[in-house]
Every structure is written in structure tokens, then in C-alpha cells.
Design a binder for these strands. Structure first.
Length: 709
DNA sequence: GAGCACTGC
């Protein structure tokens, strides 16, 4: 092996016949955990990878090939199946428990089935939450196949836009966000007798809030002598001490997983340029390893991936070794291009996948032999005082490092090259900071208040900064959703706002739209604003992409431009082709259409009149201001040197990618959707407004703004 | 005249 790398613990396989995963040998976490019940310690070298994987890429045919006998045999091979008797005893005995199961233990697919076979759930339903919709869907399909039943009957799933359950459903997989939505209608979650929160270590805002919801529901149902609620917290690896403390020292059970050993190499020296180090490592390995070894390289974003891809292609022309197929993989990539990653390459060709952390947990790529881990991740941070967002490249956590390395051991033993030193790795945080302490909280708080909780006393494992809570409550007060910001109660408007699965600023826009006779347009625009970027701009086709965008541009600003794109998409007969020609993201536009339908259904339920403002866009912009009035900026100075200042006093510029960037004279006042902090502070998705509109739309806020300015 | 990771309702 190249001397650039120091090898860590390669020969740690135990002599007792247990071929343990290299990742688990570094047994920090096993030692750290004080186990109440060490139930299972089963390891296998079976040729079949456990099917309990939580992050399967969608594949409709995946489950059809196996006969019921095959399925049963596969189930029996799973570590969790081997210890089912003791596990079930523990589940019956304890009302709350934490279950730590490594990848491949089968916990997600088997435990709900085992519980149901024993009818432990009684008259209620078993809910199993997942952070991602693909996971909820594919696991439900798998479990239905294993139980030899149709999905939607005994086994079902519920995700946004899709509810495949029936009154008969006893095992229900759903996204954590979906269960949270259900909690606003029924905070005691009465229809469930057992709730399993899976992938708890990911610490999404929804899971963190659900912890509190289910804890309170369990307590209250107990006190009111209602049907009891059993809780199981499941996770791969996690900060068990914090979780145990939170759940009153409940028992912890450890289940061993089943993955293949991955040998980890660390860089001996600190690397100053991880991109360069990645390219060097790729070609060193390329020259020395067989062509059928696929590489997976973790990078931080689209631009970086495109640059590295370009460099690889240039160097490959002169390098020795087999032919190379490079595949980019990031969320913003159109779906058709993403699929290249799963396509089989001709024999003798090496596949090199350049991915963001989408490949860390969200999708699984088979046959990866080598992982090259740059050790960095792009993370969104949010500045509460200015409201600006920032994307920063930072070192990833140890947990992420293990997760990335593990991607090489899914189907066979693998190798992982870390482009940072072992000392660097050890110095890192074990986990990343939970999302709830670093994001805006207005929508979460509105949901909590709607679910009858008190925001100030609600139990959370990690409390968000008090300033963030205060600012978010103030915003809800200003939007008219709550009556006061110390002991908040929902107003009539707030009750309606909480019914929409979108940012409260956006639901306020919709609820104001009837007044401006523009609900038709507002629905489209809010749907687009709630989706991801509609424009696809590859670095090397920037000019073409810009030209294509011209025909949608509106001099009024980005909001009307987005509306033009959306309207044109709805009319286009051949949507996929049309999107390709116009450098637009078909997936995100389709998603926006689905969101619009959902929002429309809620508006109809509220008896709102869907009228159109036609070309009278001033109406629409005033309506936008009803929800976004805290996002105004005013011109300071004149001419090209004109600068804008936000209500919070932050100096901000027009982003060059926006529709208003070249418009002169500069509008005296602007409405922006987001603030982005890079080298400078930029306003994103901006429209021009008349300064007096703010006084018409939000007089109280306008007065306070003026007083502060 | 710059550059946006990933989820979810």
C-alpha cells in the first residue's frame, strides 16, 4: 500500500471465528455504552447482505424475485431473528426502551413483524417512523412481501402526497414529519399502541420534537388511564447516555449488525488541499487496483464535483490503468443523470462516483470497493440576528466518517481512505450538532403550539438557543398566528396557518390572497418557493442556461419570473424534454405541482375563493408582502453605488443571478425571500415594491421599523 | 457580477 497512508487496525479480526466489521472493532462506542441488557452478539459471514437496510434506493422490482420461502430463509438469517424470543420478552416487559442495532441487524423490518405476530400491539397500531420517504416506502413494500400480503392492508405506509394504509393496517411505516402532522390533530396519538422512532441518531428536527410529543402522550395516557403507549427508540449508533437520561433511564439493548470488514487508512500528513489530495489518491489507486473496483469519493457540492470530474477526465487521457467512467451524484442533479450511478459499466471499466453526502445515508450504491473520504461537509448555518443563511465547508463528525467508510462494506469487504490524519479524526466531535439548535424555529413552534404544547416547558433533548425561540415567537406574533409571545395561544388565523405544511410566512401569504384576489397565482408561487431550485445550471453550460432563462425574466423581479416558469411548465406538452431544453429541473417542478395540489386542497377545505389576478401583478406582490413583510430592504445612496439595508440593519446586495441585477434605476424598496451570506450578504429571490405598500400591509410593523431606522 | 449540502410536512 502507498506509504502516504497509515493503516489502522487492519488485523483486528478476532480469532474466535467472528469476522467483525472493521468499523466496529474501534470499539469506542461499545465501551462508552453501559448496557443494561446485552442481548445479542451474533455475527455472520453469510453471502446475503441483510435486507434490513434502511436506506434502499427505490427499485420497484427489488422484492418480486424472491419466493416466500426465500424471504423466510433470509429473515431467519438476520441477527435480530436469532434473538427474537428474548427481545420480545424485553419489549413486553418495558414501556420504553432504546434499541441499538447496527446496519444489517434487521431491526427495522423484523421488530414490527415480530411484535405483530405476538399481537403485542393489541387493538392499536404499530407506527415506525423514518426520516426519509423512500425508506418508509421501500421498507413497507419489503415487509408486506415478507408477510405475504399486499401493501396497504396489514402493512402500510404514509408519506406526504401518498397514504397507503387502510383501517386494517397494523404495521404502519411513516416519515417522522408525517407523524408530527398527525400529532397536531391528535396530540395523544391515540390510534397507536406502539410507536417506534427509527434512525434516532440522525436527530432531525421532527424526530427531536417527536421525542417530546410521545413522551408527554405516554405520560398523559398513563395518568388518564387510557390505552397505554409503548415506545421503542431505535438507532444505529447514538449518544445513549443523553437518550437514557431523557427517557428516565430506560433499558438499552444492543443488537449486532452484519456488514463486511472495511479497512481504514488515514493520511499520514495533513492535507492542505483536499480536492488535490482526492485526485492524487484516485489515480494512485487507479494504477494499482483491478478495474472492477468501483470508487466512491465524498465531496462537498456541485461545483467541486464538476471541477474534480473535469480534472479526472483530463488526467485520465495520459494516465495508466483501465478506462474510467466518472459519475456525479448530488441532489440538484436531474434524476436521469443521477441514474448513471446505478448503471452497469462495460467489463474492464472503472466507475468513479463523485458524490455529496447524499451518498452517506440517503442512497445506497452497490459494489463500492473503495471509499475516498475528504472529511469535509457543506453545512448550512443560520444567523439569528440578521436572518442570513450561510453554507460553510466544515470537517464532518466521526459518526459521518464511519458512515462514509461503511459504504465500502455493504456487499463485500472494502477499503476506505481518509484524506486526513488519524489524530485529526480523533479530535473531531463524535456527532454533528442536532439540527434543532441551529435552524429557525417559527414553523416548529407553530406546530408545537397547535399540538397543545407549551413552547417554554416542552421537553427537548437539546434546547435551541433562547434567542432563536424568542425571535421565532415574535415572528409568529407579528404574522398574527399567536396572541402573545410569552404564553402563546393560537389565533383563528394561526389555527388555519398551522394546517398548511409550509413555512408560516408562506401560509400567511395564502391566507391573505383572497383579499387581493390572487390565490391562483399565490398558490403556484408558494408551491415553487417551497420547492428546491427550478433552474439547473451546469458550470460548463452556464451561458446556454442563462440564455434559456431570458424568456421567463420579468422586470418586476424573481417572483414573477418563477411564476412565468411554473406557468410555462404547466402548459408544456412534453415536460421532460421541455425542461432539458430550458435548463430546468423536471423533478423539482413536478414536486412543486404536487405541493400546489396539496395546498389547493387545504384552501378548498377552508372555503377559500380561488381567483386570479391575471396580469395585475401588483396585487400579487402586495399579497407576498403580507407574509414576507419582515424581509424588506431599502435603497441607500443612488446610482450604481446604491446599497440596500434590511429592516434588521444588515447591508445586503442584489445577487447577480437575480432578475433585478441589471435593472436601472434601482428600485427604492425590495422584498427578498432569503438572505445569503457569502463573501458579501446577498438577497435571493427578490421583487421590487413601493415603500408605501409596507404601511398598507403591515402598519404596526412599518411604524416600528421606521422608529428603529 | 457570484456561485446552494441534505432532509421533511
Amino acid at each position: 500500500m502507498d506509504s502516504k497512508y497509515a493503516c489502522m487496525g487492519v488485523n483486528n479480526s478476532k480469532g474466535n471465528g467472528l469476522k467483525r466489521n472493521q468499523i466496529m472493532i474501534d470499539s469506542i462506542k461499545v465501551k462508552k455504552i453501559k448496557l443494561n441488557n446485552e442481548i445479542a452478539s451474533v455475527a455472520h459471514t453469510s453471502k446475503v447482505e441483510a435486507n434490513g437496510c434502511n436506506n434502499t434506493h427505490v427499485n420497484d422490482n427489488m422484492f418480486d424475485k424472491e419466493s416466500p420461502q426465500d424471504l423466510l430463509e433470509a429473515r431467519r438469517q438476520l441477527p435480530v431473528y436469532m434473538v427474537k424470543k428474548r427481545l420480545l420478552e424485553e419489549i413486553k416487559k418495558n414501556n420504553t426502551m432504546i434499541l441499538i442495532g447496527e446496519t444489517g441487524s434487521g431491526k427495522t423490518t423484523q421488530i414490527p413483524q415480530l411484535i405483530h405476530e405476538q399481537r403485542i400491539e393489541g387493538a392499536g397500531t404499530i407506527a415506525i417512523t423514518q426520516p426519509r420517504r423512500v425508506a418508509a416506502i421501500t421498507i413497507a413494500l419489503r415487509v408486506a412481501a415478507e408477510m405475504n400480503t399486499e401493501v396497504g392492508s396489514i402493512v402500510g405506509y404514509s408519506v406526504r402526497f401518498e397514504d397507503v394504509t387502510s383501517p386494517r393496517t397494523k404495521v404502519k411505516y411513516l416519515t417522522d414529519g408525517m407523524l408530527l402532522r398527525e400529532a397536531t390533530l391528535d396530540p395523544l396519538l391515540k390510534k397507536y399502541s406502539i410507536i417506534i422512532l427509527d434512525e434516532a441518531h440522525e436527530r432531525t428536527v421532527s424526530t427531536d420534537v417527536l421525542f417530546g410529543i410521545v413522551k408527554l402522550a405516554q405520560k398523559e395516557r398513563n395518568e388518564e388511564k387510557m390505552n397505554p403507549l409503548k415506545l421503542i427508540i431505535m438507532s444505529a449508533t447514538m449518544d445513549v447516555d443523553a437518550f437514557r437520561k431523557y427517557f428516565n433511564n430506560c433499558p438499552v439493548i444492543y443488537l449486532e449488525g452484519r456488514t463486511y470488514p472495511v479497512t481504514i487508512y488515514h493520511s499520514k500528513m495533513k492535507q492542505d488541499d483536499y480536492q488535490y489530495a482526492a485526485v492524487c489518491t484516485i489515480f494512485q489507486l487507479h494504477a494499482t487496483t483491478p478495474a472492477n473496483h468501483d470508487f466512491l469519493v465524498f465531496l462537498t457540492g456541485q461545483e467541486e464535483i464538476e471541477t474534480v470530474m473535469y480534472n479526472i477526465k483530463q488526467i485520465a487521457k495520459e494516465a495508466t490503468g483501465p478506462p474510467i467512467r466518472v459519475c456525479p451524484l448530488y441532489a440538484g442533479l436531474p434524476a436521469a443523470k443521477q441514474l448513471q450511478v446505478w448503471r452497469v459499466v462495460p467489463p474492464g471499466t472503472r466507475k468513479i462516483i463523485l458524490a455529496t453526502n447524499i451518498a452517506e445515508a440517503s442512497v445506497t450504491i452497490p459494489r463500492i470497493k473503495c471509499v475516498i473520504d475528504t472529511g469535509v461537509v457543506k453545512e448550512r448555518t443560520w444567523c439569528g440576528s440578521t436572518g442570513a443563511e450561510r453554507l460553510m465547508v466544515r470537517p464532518c463528525s466521526q459518526a459521518a466518517g464511519w458512515q462514509r467508510a461503511g459504504r465500502a462494506g455493504r456487499t463485500a469487504p472494502g477499503l476506505a481512505y481518509r484524506l486526513y490524519t488519524a489524530a485529526d479524526f480523533k479530535a473531531r466531535h463524535y456527532h454533528h450538532t442536532p439540527e434543532i439548535v441551529r435552524c429557525p424555529l417559527a414553523s416548529t413552534l407553530l406546530l408545537l403550539i397547535a399540538a397543545g404544547a407549551e413552547p417554554t416547558t416542552f421537553p427537548l433533548i437539546d434546547a435551541p438557543p433562547p434567542d432563536t425561540v424568542k425571535a421565532s415567537l415574535l415572528l409568529l406574533k407579528e404574522l398574527g398566528a399567536i396572541d402573545n409571545d410569552t404564553n402563546p395561544k393560537l389565533t383563528v388565523l394561526g389555527k388555519k396557518m398551522s394546517m398548511f405544511p409550509i413555512d408560516p410566512k408562506y401560509s400567511k401569504i395564502l391566507l391573505s390572497a383572497t383579499e387581493y384576489s390572487c390565490l391562483d397565482e399565490a398558490l403556484s408561487l408558494v408551491a415553487v418557493l417551497s420547492s428546491q431550485n427550478l433552474f439547473h445550471t451546469p458550470v460548463y453550460k452556464r451561458a446556454e442556461a442563462l440564455t434559456a432563462k431570458q424568456k421567463f425574466l420579468s422586470p418586476l423581479g424573481d417572483h414573477i419570473t418563477l411564476l412565468n416558469v411554473f406557468k410555462a411548465f404547466c402548459k408544456a406538452p412534453l415536460k421532460k424534454q421541455w425542461c432539458r431544453e430550458n435548463y430546468l429541473n423536471h423533478k423539482n417542478l413536478t414536486y412543486a405541482c404536487e405541493v400546489r395540489q396539496q395546498l389547493l386542497a387545504i384552501c378548498q377545505k377552508l372555503n377559500m375563493n380561488v381567483s386570479s389576478c391575471g396580469q395585475a401583478y401588483e396585487q400579487l406582490l402586495k399579497c407576498l408582502l403580507c407574509g414576507l413583510f419582515t424581509n424588506c430592504a431599502w435603497l441607500r445612496g443612488v446610482g450604481a453605488g446604491g446599497r440596500y439595508v434590511t429592516a434588521g440593519g444588515t447591508a445586503a446586495g442584489l445577487h447577480p443571478s437575480g432578475s433585478l441585477h441589471t435593472v436601472r434605476p434601482l428600485p427604492p424598496a425590495l422584498l427578498y425571500t432569503e438572505l445569503l451570506q457569502t463573501n458579501r450578504c446577498y438577497m435571493l429571490t427578490v421583487s421590487a415594491i413601493q415603500p408605501q405598500w409596507l404601511h398598507q400591509v403591515a402598519p404596526e410593523y412599518a411604524r416600528r421599523c421606521r422608529a428603529n431606522r
